[in-house]
Design a protein around this nucleic acid. Structure first.
Lengths: 233, 233
DNA sequence: AAGTGGTCTAGACCACACC
DNA sequence: GTGTGGTCTAGACCACTTC
């Protein structure tokens, strides 16, 4: 019965994955329990558990106490989407990064921004707009609101060499973030800044982050045409 | 030293997360080893290991043998991006789903499609274009190439009630996928189909999937204006 | 060489969900 | 009640990396 000893959890995961891929186990089907699989693979139950947990975390299996483990009927697979520092994102593309601050003002929070951050409208925030460049070509336009309450140090930062993005990432940890991805036509102003035509399709990322329920920043990133996000599963 | 017994790995994870968020441990700093943390929390090393592994998997910690565990300097955090069945995506928005097949032809693979799928140009594929509707409003335009070799059954499917998307998800497991997200201006044809104006900014998803190195399908999804992808960390 | 994380074991008890 | 997964333990050996 034991066909292979010295299995590690990865090889067990791969074998179970194969059985799902090859439809040896059909969607919705109950698969053997941890104890039975441990016997089959000649390993401890904890090792099988590790493999099953990984597959469940990618959406391939549904696990419930008492009910057992089933192959997911609607395999809503999950891909990871990473949030890099813009400077590093540019440099990873083999380009030289630079940036320019367009505006930097203390302003009361507009209603929409206050709602996103979960604060009272009118609270003092730092509003900054800036452009990041890749080899002198506009790369992304950043429109950012920062909570002065949470991040008082932001008022003393010299933004000539470090962007608000990178300063925040390095100086303020965040525990929670909301993200919205969408597409939008460039306004005249955006087109001018990004060196494109009004109406050009821009990839937009809106990101709001908190640190333990303290709002940090809400930012809208408008990427120059041609920008792509790549992911793998 | 032991401040709390009966800790589970989640509470240990949360406590370590708090120390990172509060900058008790600074970015780049070496944190105590597993043995030491296990003593502090009064639990087994494996329990601490579980908590540390979770934090490392979200990008908050960098772990290396011999070198120890450090707080990530550039916390490239990861969000999960799920790949739903379009029908379910529409219904989750409280709308009624329907779809219409615009074309369905056996064609030799164009070079670009062949390259994406990793097959020889000219190989026979099924090319299908279709529109999904949400409450009779165009939702997404789908341009799909399917490998007949890998999925011969696709030729016998009645697409009047099930979309290729859903049929494939339910009938062909996939083990690997590439995704590209970007924005594009609607062509005249796309605008007509999606009931918008030429030039409108469309959110584009290009997705290619394989099952154990057998190519399944490559699809380009052009979402009607207003579409957003939401994620949380 | 030595210290760190990576993994595995054998066993145990618990929580939950279905009976 | 009862069976399943969820978690924990105490110990062990291994793999990798830095010294």
């Amino acid at each position: 019965m034991t066909t292979a000893e010295n299995q590690n959890w990865r090889s067990i995961r791969d074998e179970l994955n194969r059985r799902i891929a090859k439809r040896i186990w059909l969607p919705g089907e109950l698969i053997p329990g941890e104890v039975e699989l441990a016997e089959e693979f000649g390993c401890a139950r904890a090792t099988v558990n590790r493999a099953l947990r990984e597959l469940a975390s990618t959406g391939l299996l549904d696990r419930r106490r008492r009910a057992g483990t089933r192959v997911a009927r609607h395999p809503v697979r999950k891909a990871t989407f990473s949030i890099p520092i813009t400077r590093i994102e540019v440099e990873d593309r083999g380009a030289a990064w630079s940036h320019r601050v367009l505006s930097n003002d203390r302003l009361p929070a507009p209603a929409q921004v206050a709602e996103r951050l979960g604060i009272k409208p009118g609270q003092d925030l730092l509003h900054q707009t800036s452009v990041h460049f890749a080899d002198r070509e506009p790369f992304v336009l950043e429109d950012r609101w920062i909570s002065i309450d949470t991040v008082p140090g932001i008022l003393d930062v010299d933004f000539s060499h470090i962007s608000a993005n990178e300063w925040l990432v390095q100086n303020v940890a965040f525990t929670r973030g909301d993200f919205v991805l969408c597409a939008a036509n460039a306004s005249r102003t955006e087109a001018d800044i990004l060196d494109t035509k009004p109406g050009a399709a821009l990839f937009i990322v809106e990101r709001t982050t908190w640190n333990l329920d303290m709002p940090i920043t809400s930012v809208r990133l408008a990427y120059a045409p041609g920008y792509q996000v790549r992911m793998e599963i």
